[in-house]
């Protein structure tokens, strides 16, 4: 670091008249006085204001963009696991998979399946499905029209196999299932529908 000439100090402190200095020292003193004046001057007010206003006027990013930015920003996550808890968690997941909660309805055997019967009978008071699965006995499987829209449904557990059936509407009208793709002559001048019940556990 160069030492400053003591006469410069004296000139800056006003102890020595600038005229008493050499031309070179006078220039140095002039430069230092200019620099001090610059440093002492307040910051330009207009510049600060414009920067603040620019920051205020900047549009707020949308929630989606903020979420995206938050998701895209790398973060360090510390995850401490006790092995005993992770094993317990795995056991709970396995149990829920094997024995799901909220499972109601009958237990279905290996040689059983589910048959769904649906028919549109607006204005009907009752609809039953009758077939070789219930010895053609009316009344054992009633369809329901829960939402009163004329569409009657029943979901039934049956042994696997093929069965012939018909709907009995209001206890007297025999109607084939028009939605069934399989039909066969019943030898009485009408057609029975056929349902093939496949094992539920496949």
């Amino acid at each position: 670091m160069n030492a400053i000439d003591p006469r410069i100090h004296q000139a800056l402190d006003g102890e020595l008249a600038p005229a008493a200095l050499s031309a070179e020292l006078s220039r140095v003193v002039e430069r230092l006085v200019t620099a001090a004046a610059l440093l002492a001057a307040p910051l330009p007010l207009a510049s600060l204001e414009s920067r603040v206003m620019a920051a205020i006027r900047r549009p707020v990013p949308s929630p989606a963009r903020r979420l995206l930015r938050w998701l895209a920003t790398p973060r360090a996550i510390t995850f401490r696991v006790r092995p005993v808890w992770s094993l317990a968690f795995a056991a709970v997941v396995a149990l829920l998979t094997l024995f799901p909660l909220g499972h109601e309805g009958p237990d279905i055997g290996e040689h059983e399946g589910i048959a769904q019967f649906v028919g549109r009978f607006p204005g009907a008071q009752s609809v039953h499905v009758v077939g070789s699965f219930n010895d053609w006995r009316s009344g054992s499987i009633a369809l329901e029209d829960v939402d009163q829209d004329g569409v009657w449904r029943a979901t039934v557990v049956l042994p696997t196999g093929a069965y012939e059936y018909m709907f009995v509407v209001d206890g007297e009208r025999w109607v084939p299932d028009h939605l069934a793709e399989r039909l066969v002559a019943d030898e009485f001048g009408r057609e029975n529908s056929i349902v093939i019940v496949r094992p539920a556990r496949r």
Binding site: I108, Q116, V156
Partner: peptide, 9 residues
Amino acid sequence: AVARARRPA
């Protein structure tokens, strides 16, 4: 469907 299913009476 399984939950709804019932056996014939």
